[in-house]
Amino acid sequence: MDQLVFLILSIISIGAALAVIFSKNPVYSVLFLILTFFSIAGHYVLLNAQFLFIVHIIVYAGAIMVLFLFVIMLLNLNKTNETSKSMLPKIAGAISGGLLLIVLLGAVKGLNQAEASQAVNADMGSVKNLGKILFSEYLLPFEVSSALFLSAMIGAVMLGKKNLKDH
């Protein structure tokens, strides 16, 4: 049962991810990206990480992608106003993407598979456990990242304010 669900989800996520790249219309790309996020969220449920699943949907599918779609709809990109691009960014993109792929492959190869399967139990991904770990073992990274978010937020507000004064 789990295997079957995993298979279906994987097919959807890979298919949707490919569709993101290959669709001509940027709005379609964004919509396929949302579909990819949903299927990845489905994988989280299979791993008993319900909290991660729901936060993934709220944050990525529900908030970030809405803004993404928002911007793309406003820009109204289409073939008529697409400027001809030089080859340089394409090559740069291919190289950086390829490097990322190598890094990811290396990371996956280094994983000890037996250890990973051992850690999965029914309660692992619950809010309670996650909260306890975040506020004990990973307290410092957690607080540092919150400080980072705060500074980013203040920065965004400052940028907005400065623009107001200019006009």
Partner: peptide
């Protein structure tokens, strides 16, 4: 669901896609 409220919240946040 043990994350019932968050589920509600997630579904609500997806609801905007229909309109968009």
């Amino acid at each position: 669901l043990n994350i019932g409220i968050l589920y509600v919240f997630a579904v609500v946040s997806i609801g905007v896609y229909g309109i968009m």
